[in-house]
Amino acid sequence: MKKIIIILFTILVSSLANSQVYVVVNTSVESDSVDCEKLLEIYTLNTNNWDDGGRITVIDHKGDENSKSVFYECIKINQKAVKKIRLKKLFTGSAKPPKSATSDLEILDLVSKTPGAVGYIDKNSLDTSIKNIKVVAVLDI
């Protein structure tokens, strides 16, 4: 029994360690890389402009996908805190809420169609045939 638990635990840890998230943006964004600090500012709605001055459209997962927990762990903030910060900004009129998507495919679709958009997806969901998107960060835990 102990062996089984150890094996299961090892599989779980290794699968988590291999969790990778791609941060994708619309090709209208000039930057080719975005660091975690900037992503934190973007996803807490503390900034709405890229470094080149372009407008940021934030796209987030609606549900509780694995990529979502990996993403927020990488930018070092918990989802509950993000919700609270966004709610405060929404109700004080200082920011608009992010667009939400129900799947990685929808995120890719929205990013490709929206200039300045940013989203994140599981690495296995990347579809290179979709135009107007580029990967600007690879996050893993």
């Binding site: 600090e37 934190l40 500012e41 807490t44 503390n46 070092k76 903030i77 805190a81 910060i85």
Partner: peptide
């Protein structure tokens, strides 16, 4: 004038 962390904690 104030100071806050980016995580707002």
């Amino acid at each position: 004038i104030g100071l806050r962390t980016k995580k707002e904690n």
